[in-house]
């Protein structure tokens, strides 16, 4: 997804470990409740497993695992966002918020102050009243989930 699209699209907000994130709605197809997963041994840590979404097999990634955050306490209340990138992925987050309009004014390129781990998946931030909203870069996110190694600090969130 390139930046010109971002600036004029609408965003879906979601929450992971109390941090609010946003994704362009054009990059996702739907949001589903927790799915039955098939765990694949030896898969990268960020992979929850494979899910069968109406006959289509998708790799489910976990936002918390990508960011090396502690596992969520109650897996049942999570939501999985179905991404359309590549062969299609599920991205599991703690919860989803609402669809908002992109406010190009408030958009800012990834600020230096952001933690390394966030930077690696971030497209930019939106400054809002309640705090900053991190706009995710799906391609970066997927690349990171494959390399799986997020050894750098996650202090930016904590």
């Amino acid at each position: 997804m390139n930046s010109k699209n971002i600036s004029c699209s609408r965003l879906l907000t979601c929450c992971v470990a109390d941090q609010w994130l946003a994704l362009s709605v054009e990059e996702l197809s739907e949001v589903v409740t927790p799915q039955v997963k098939t765990v694949i041994p030896l898969a990268p840590v960020a992979v929850n497993g494979l899910i069968n979404l109406r006959g289509k097999i998708l790799t489910e990634l976990d936002m918390r695992k990508i960011l090396e955050l502690p596992e969520r306490e109650n897996a049942l209340i999570s939501r999985t966002i179905i991404l359309e990138a590549g062969e299609g992925f599920g991205l599991t987050v703690d919860s989803v918020g609402e669809v908002i309009d992109m406010d190009a004014e408030a958009f800012e390129r990834t600020p230096d102050s952001l933690g390394e781990c966030w930077k690696s998946v971030c497209h930019g931030v939106l400054k809002q009243k309640k705090g900053i909203l991190i706009v995710l870069d799906v391609e970066k996110l997927i690349a990171k989930s494959i390399s799986a190694d997020c050894t750098s600090s996650v202090s930016g969130v904590r």
């Binding site: 030896l42 898969a43 494979l50 069968n52 097999i57 790799t59 062969e87 989930s145």
Partner: peptide, 27 residues
């Protein structure tokens, strides 16, 4: 036989995946 996603490219032990009669996904 369905292909596995790119997260599994490095794993030579899998040749793909499929959905069984009960809807379960199997590698």
């Amino acid at each position: 036989v369905k292909p596995l996603g790119r997260h599994f490219n490095h794993l030579e032990i899998y040749g793909g995946c499929s959905i069984l009669g009960d809807g379960r996904v199997v590698p």
